[in-house]
Amino acid sequence: MEPESRPPAEGGREREPGVADLAAAYAAKAGLHRHDDGRIDVLRSAGGIRGVLESILPGLVFLVAFTIVRELVLPIVLAIVVAAVFVVVRLASRTTPTQAFAGVVGIAVSAALALFTGKAQDFYITGFITNAAYIVALAVSVAVRWPLMGVVFGFLRNEGVHWRQDPQRARQYRLGTWIMVAVLALRLVVEVPLYLMGDAGVVALGAMRLILGVPLYALGIWLAWLVSRPLPGAERADDARA
């Protein structure tokens, strides 16, 4: 189901056009989807099987290769090659290669940093920075009363931004957003100490990056969706507006 981009005004009042349009655009780009019966489609939201593989395999190849050879160049080359293969596959199948291209760029930046410092653990620094940026963005969105999970889920549920007028729904979406903050914070709490261990923690850091990556993200999205479910009566009203 595609999120509605221009929800009707309520009570004769005009909606907030600029913010609402930005919210719709953000929701459309977030890549989250739901089933026809209203359940969150966790696998599709994570990019499907191909998207999951694109997220996991380059890092897994780097970790396995580094564990075996204990030097940087070969693991980095193999990780970049794997990421590039996904781009080629998407281009050949005429599907949008944006996620695969982003993967190649991310791996290349991580690889350049690790090669520059000569430290394998620095391959994971960009992940820390990205993770911290998302935590700040999510926390700020709650502080300014536009919790991002409400922005995304609101359009998936055909609520638009009207949930902001309902204190109960707003509280639910704030809770859902804090759940995602907790998920991202957990990654840093587990991974940063392993990074600080230097070479001794590289293998464990790589393993934790995989475990706390897509699987933990999917769990967080599912929990955020559950805690922000509307009451049955409210859900029927939303469906009537769709």
Rank of each mutant, 00 (worst) to 15 (best):
A112E: 10
Q121K: 11
T95N: 04
F153K: 01
R229W: 05
Y173T: 10
Q172D: 15
L138N: 01
L91D: 06
L231C: 06
R145M: 08
D122R: 12
M197N: 01
A120T: 02
G206R: 08
L196F: 04
W178C: 01
A185C: 10
H162N: 08
A207K: 01
E191F: 06
T96G: 00
G150A: 08
G201M: 10
V189F: 05
A204H: 11
T130H: 00
A132G: 14
W222T: 09
Q168W: 07
P147W: 09
V109A: 06
I221C: 11
L156W: 02
Q121T: 15
I135M: 12
V109K: 04
A204R: 13
A111F: 05
P167A: 12
R171W: 04
N158D: 14
A133L: 15
A200V: 00
Y173P: 03
L231R: 07
T177D: 10
V136M: 04
M149T: 08
V161G: 01
A92L: 13
L175Q: 13
L175V: 12
F153P: 02
L212C: 03
M180T: 05
P97G: 01
R229Y: 10
V227E: 06
V192N: 00
G206F: 07
L156D: 03
F116E: 09
A200T: 02
T117V: 04
Q165G: 07
L216D: 06
A100E: 01
L113Y: 10
L216A: 13
Y134E: 05
F116R: 15
F123L: 14
G127F: 05
